[in-house]
């Protein structure tokens, strides 16, 4: 038997013994037999110097490979028997390898959720500029010049006879100028109000406005649409209350309260003991708005609504300070990952 064959046979034999050993003691014994100071593999390695040069290199490499493999296999096999006394291979209570993904901003998530619901109802998204003209933000929306209705929204004015839009409703006008009915659109985006920054108010907030114009659109359709939205966004089984209100660009106008989803309408701190939460404004598009954009109000009717983003989010997640939406504090943002 050549020395190479001898190494191969020895390996075969040892592996068999490792796999059939029935105790730690026998494993240890075998290890001495093969890898001990007077072990068989050790003997081969020791005898290398007596071999011819070419053979020496080849056999040496094989024998060493064999030694490494057997040592590993003995280690693994011995651990199999000594589990009780020694630490287990795996500690599953350690956190797995860190896999950090970033968090999308909560505002993004809420807008996506709202838009997703409306998208499912067949609304398309449209966008418009943040810096607007008086015409789109007020006049075309039927705010008379110098009228107290303009005080309902504290406005930032910008040089060049512009202003920061106070709602995303101007996009409605821009789309009405471009499209022919049927038009079914939501307009998510940033709006601005000139208010002192505090826990309840900020200079900027987001809104998802929506509107539908077609032949035969009624207030019943508006109610149906908003009831469906609220079910999807806030949960099933909550009552809505439509209260008449006033917006220059809709008539009849309504504000919608939803039964407080935290207390189920019994009254709690969040709903200020009323059992109701104010969540959105809506109404039938004022005929003047349609006329101004060249649509015949006798032929078409439409509804419109505007939903804040931060406020429902604050209610839903019980956030008590609107500034958290803008100070980019990762301790906040990462809670919504």
């Amino acid at each position: 038997m050549s020395p190479l064959e001898e190494v191969a046979r020895l390996r075969q034999e040892a592996l068999e013994r490792i796999s059939t050993a029935d105790s730690l003691a026998s494993l240890k014994e075998f290890r001495v037999q093969y890898l001990g100071r007077k072990g068989r593999l050790t003997a081969i390695l020791k005898g290398l110097k007596d071999l011819p040069v070419e053979q020496r290199k080849q056999v040496g490499a094989e024998a060493n490979k064999c030694r490494v493999q057997l040592e590993q296999d003995f280690d693994v096999a011995e651990r199999r028997f000594s589990e009780k006394s020694e630490a287990p291979l795996i500690d599953p209570t350690l956190p797995g390898t860190a896999q950090r993904v970033g968090a999308m901003h909560l505002t993004t998530q809420v807008i996506e959720e709202m838009c997703g619901i409306f998208y499912g109802m067949g609304f398309e998204i449209a966008r418009g500029p943040d810096i607007e003209t008086d015409y789109y933000n007020f006049s075309a929306l039927n705010f008379p010049p110098d009228h107290p209705a303009r005080d309902m929204q504290d406005t930032f004015f910008v040089e060049g006879d512009r202003l920061l839009r106070t709602h995303t409703t101007p996009v409605q006008i821009r789309e009405l100028e471009k499209q022919k009915p049927p038009i079914k659109i939501i307009t998510p985006g940033k709006c601005f109000r000139n208010e002192a920054i505090c826990s309840r108010a900020h200079v900027a907030f987001h809104q998802v406005d929506g509107f539908l114009i077609d032949k035969g659109v009624t207030m019943a359709d508006l109610k149906g649409c908003l009831v469906a939205f609220c079910k999807a966004f806030f949960g099933e089984g909550l009552k809505l209350k439509f209260r008449p209100s006033y917006f220059p660009f809709t008539e009849p106008s309504a504000e919608v309260d939803i039964q407080c989803f935290l207390c189920g309408g019994d009254g709690c701190a969040v709903c200020k003991r009323t059992g109701w939460l104010e969540i959105l404004g809506c109404g039938m598009i004022d005929p003047a708005v349609l006329e101004m954009t060249g649509h015949d109000p006798e032929k078409y009717t439409g509804y419109a609504f505007g939903i804040g983003v931060e406020r429902p989010a604050m209610l839903k997640y019980r956030i008590d300070d609107i500034r958290l939406f803008y100070n980019n504090d990762l301790r906040f943002l990462r809670q919504f990952v």
Binding site: R100, V101, G102, A103, M104, H105, T107, T108, D130, K190, F192, H202, V203, A204, F325, Y326, N328, L330, L333, R334
Partner: peptide
Amino acid sequence: GFDEMLDHGL
């Protein structure tokens, strides 16, 4: 692994 931030724009 990037977190999204959002500013008011002013």
